[in-house]
Amino acid sequence: MSDERPTLTRDEVAHLAQLARLAVTDDELDLFAGQLDVILGAVARIGDVAAADIPPTSHAVPLQNVFRADEVRPSLPREDVLAGAPAVEDSRFRVPQILGEEE
């Protein structure tokens, strides 16, 4: 069966790019639509594996309860915090006008 998935359309690629905040060009949309479709076709065979009852693995060596004590450690000097920033004002990171709502 491997690939019964509908092919990835240009519009879907545009939607993915929007979700991922990538201002892709029209040429890229054409290129990526084809390439992503091939890749997704190749990975779709993952669905052939009968794994319904198999627990997922997220880490190779299973660990749990890794904590740190609630202790204050030194923060970075503020010059260092802001040194790499594209724009700074009043010791804060300056960003252009935000259109979206706060979550």
Binding site: A20, L22, L31, L36, I39, V95, Q97, I98, L99
Partner: peptide, 27 residues
């Protein structure tokens, strides 16, 4: 807008393979 600046930055800052993988992963 900030949203546009983010998208333009990522579009120009990342190469094709990175963008491909980001989109595959987003999907």
């Amino acid at each position: 807008s900030l949203e546009e600046v983010m998208s333009l930055t990522r579009e120009q800052g990342f190469g094709a393979e990175v963008k491909r993988r980001i989109m595959i992963g987003t999907y």
